[in-house]
Nucleic acid binder design. Structure first.
Length: 741
DNA sequence: CGCCGTACGGTTTTT
DNA sequence: CCGTACGGCG
């Protein structure tokens, strides 16, 4: 049978075990995507399951796209109708169609984190909490966690046990209320509300449960409570659920993912069949062994025996750079050399890093070396201000109750409606109990409603009337326009081009982005205008970037470790392999987070097919100031015989530029910051600590210096203390730290 | 009200 | 380093 050819016995079993619950534990590079696509093809072609009765959920849109392509390769037209997408996309679709059953208007907007923040700031005003004392961010993230655990505001309120939770509880209630008033859902709502829909409406639940004869979920280790509940609900009738995951690749717990769902699965779905995919087809033995050396140190994991028939291959290179620029120069230099010699095409290379900010140095180096590259993530297209502004206009046109969008556009471009006027408008609308947009509309109503005189002076009234007039006009016209026509009309009416060109240094680039947006919108030309606008907006909300032109072979890839999950490259550079970067400083608080950093490292390493290079820098500019971090602990966990070490020779002369960057040469407003200079500034080097040194503190006890940085002529050290004290950041001149051996 | 300058603070990862 | 918050001016 040709769908099964070329699969090993375990893979084959994973494809043909189509009855009942199945758990596939798939190590990196084990051909798991192939297994899933072949399984879908097998269901359709061999078992005659109609594609529309199959639901396949992936973790990213990109994965969904790739999977769809592969299924189409196997089945052609026969795959038409298959439901394939992320949980969020699948839920959004269900809510558009059936959300009415629990009172969700089908024109709901989807709020991203910016929108959430805007809304939360209003919430804090409404419940009279000072945003400076409690950070809106932390409230939002607490609420998000509650939602992904399916905790409603009422349930949350019942479990409140301290002051912070008390505030969160009030904020949560008000926040949900405002979302509803705005006819908007945030990302967590998409999941939570769908679970509610399925549990509360028997009719809807039965319909979907009947429909989905087979449910497949990829990257199951990254599901949260809500997603797990969805998977369970949707597969309850037929119980043909196949989940694929690997606890060692769980890297999204900060987003409430819980890899224990993998383990719960076996208890929740009795008699689930477990299939292990342990043969690796991707990496050399050396790379695999190195990665295993790192991951093996995690507690409480099930040890897997990954093996490969591939060659041992090259040793893992460990490179010590002087600083982050030097590190970038090294990677770019090697890649450029390989391109020049024709050894490899640019598409073979990927450079991976822990945080997006690290990409800058790399980009500069790549540009200097004229290496074609694509930057994945970073400031994504739909995150750009000018793009978001226009999207907000469209959202407002589609859904006038959306006050977050209204707030965004009411004075963009500036039309003399400032903070004060907005405040008045908000209060006025609230007093008369209508959405702000409706309140504005009352200003141009032929017959003025009797609900209180508008609290604006003549000049302001004028500005507001002009604004609402413009929007209302475009709204009326919108019914007959395609998305690009609508955008162009809008752009012209608000004179957006002039606003961008005159108002910004990089106006040209911003304008180019606007035009790009119009181009993207043209994909929806064929649909009926209202529906076109709706699907355009939904896609904008759920798809984080514009379809990358798949110019794989033409460009090297710069990517975060998180975003690299699921990908593979012949050559991988992992940069910033230092304490405080990977593992990230924020993960020192808890062993769980530290284990996640380890998994992240493992994920990165196992992306490499043939060659893996790990680099660390002695000095790195972080947030403008240099820090000195020792090499990552993860490097030490790689068996030494598998590695080769390289570094710039120790007497490598620092060029003037990097000296200037490090701040050894005095710069206005900055303090001396090289290690030597700090020593000099503080006096005699007595107090100049280096990472790795053992110290004692009168209160916190014994500890070890994790990292150091200069701060206001003083030295700030991060110290990991033994026992309960944990990690502290201390100023050397105040903290009575002693060296200790 | 909008604009400009300066001071300050915060920086992980993403659907 | 960068974006934003805030204060003072036109």
């Amino acid at each position: 049978m040709d769908i099964l050819s070329g699969l090993n016995p375990a893979q084959r079993e994973a494809v043909v075990s189509t009855r009942g619950p199945v758990l596939i534990v798939a190590g990196p590079g084990s051909g798991k995507t192939r297994v899933i696509t072949h399984r879908i093809a097998y269901l359709v072609a061999e078992e005659g399951v109609p594609p529309w009765r199959v639901l396949a959920v992936t973790f990213t849109n990109k994965a969904a796209r790739e999977m769809r392509d592969r299924v189409t390769d196997l089945l052609g037209q026969a795959s038409e109708g298959l439901t394939l997408g992320t949980f969020h996309a699948v839920c959004a679709r269900m809510l558009r169609i059936d959300g009415g059953a629990i009172g969700i208007d089908r024109s709901f907007a989807i709020y991203d984190d910016d929108d959430q923040m805007t809304l939360m700031k209003r919430v804090l005003i409404d419940i009279a909490v000072d945003a400076k004392r409690v950070s809106p961010r932390s409230i939002l993230s607490t609420i998000s966690k509650a939602k992904s655990e399916l905790t409603t505001p009422a349930e949350y309120a019942r479990a409140v046990s301290d002051y912070f939770q008390e505030i969160v509880s009030r904020a949560y209630a008000r926040y949900q209320q405002l979302l509803e008033q705005n006819t908007a859902l945030d990302f967590d709502d998409l999941l939570m509300r769908t679970v509610q829909l399925l549990s509360q409406s028997e009719d809807v639940r039965t319909r979907y449960q009947e429909r989905y004869l087979h449910v497949l979920v990829d990257e199951f280790q990254d599901t949260n409570v809500a997603q797990y509940a969805l998977a369970k609900l949707l597969s309850e009738k037929h119980r043909n659920i196949c989940i694929v995951g690997d606890e060692d690749q769980s890297i999204y717990s900060w987003r409430s993912a819980d890899y224990r769902n993998l383990l719960n699965f076996q208890t929740d779905f009795e008699g689930a069949k477990t299939i292990l995919l342990e043969q690796n087809y991707r990496s050399t033995q050396t790379i695999l062994d190195s990665a295993q050396g790192v991951i093996r140190r995690n507690q409480g994991r099930h040890d897997k025996v990954l093996w490969t028939e591939n060659d041992r291959g090259l040793p893992v290179t460990i490179f010590e750079a002087q600083d982050d620029e030097d590190e970038a120069r090294f990677a770019a230099g090697e890649i450029a050399a390989a391109l020049r010699s024709g050894e490899r095409p640019a598409g073979d290379f990927a450079v991976m890093y822990r945080i997006n900010a690290q990409s800058r140095a790399l980009e500069e180096a790549f540009m200097r070396e004229a290496i074609p590259y694509r930057l994945v993530g970073g400031t994504r297209f739909y995150q750009r201000r000018e793009v978001k502004d226009l999207i907000a206009y469209l959202r407002l046109i589609q859904n006038p109750t959306d006050s977050v969008s209204l707030l965004r556009v009411i004075n963009t471009p500036t039309r003399g409606i400032g903070a004060k006027a907005i405040e008045e408008l908000w209060r006025w609308a609230q007093n008369t109990d209508v959405p702000p947009y409706e309140a504005l509309r009352a200003l141009i109503a032929p017959v003025r409603p009797a609900n209180g005189a508008p609290p604006f002076r003549a000049g302001m009234l004028n500005a507001l009337v002009r604004f609402i007039d413009t929007i209302e006009q475009v709204r009326e016209e919108s019914l007959g326009l395609t998305p690009p026509e609508l955008l162009n009309t809008l752009i012209e009416r608000i004179q957006f081009r002039r606003y961008l060109m005159d108002g910004f240094e990089d106006g040209e680039e911003r304008w180019a982005n606007v035009q790009e947006l119009v181009t993207v919108a043209a994909q929806y030309d064929a649909l009926e205008p209202r529906e076109a606008l709706a699907s355009f907006l939904e896609n904008v909300a759920l798809v984080s970037d514009v379809d990358e032109l798949e110019q794989r072979s033409a460009a090297a890839t710069l990517i975060t470790l998180h975003a690299a999950k699921g990908l593979e490259f012949p050559v991988v550079y992992m940069v910033g392999m230092e304490e405080a970067v990977l593992p990230h400083i924020r993960s020192y608080d808890s062993p769980e987070q530290m284990e996640e950093e380890r998994r992240l490292c493992y994920v990165g390493m196992t992306r490499a097919r043939e060659r893996l290079v790990l680099t660390h820098a002695r000095r790195r500019a972080l947030m403008g100031t240099p820090v000195f971090n020792p090499p990552s602990r993860f490097i030490k966990d790689i068996p030494e015989q598998l590695t080769e070490s390289r570094s710039r020779s120790d007497d490598f002369p620092l060029d003037r530029r990097s000296i200037a960057r490090a701040g050894v040469l005095p710069r206005p407003g900055r303090v001396p910051v090289s290690a030597q200079d700090v020593a000099a500034a503080i006096g005699g080097g007595e107090r100049n600590f280096q990472p790795g040194e053992r110290v004692r503190h009168p209160k916190f006890g014994e500890g070890i210096i994790v990292s150091t940085r200069a701060n206001g002529g003083d030295q700030e050290v991060t110290v990991a203390f033994k026992g309960e004290s944990g990690v502290k950041r201390l100023m050397v001149s105040y903290a009575r730290l002693e060296r200790h051996s």
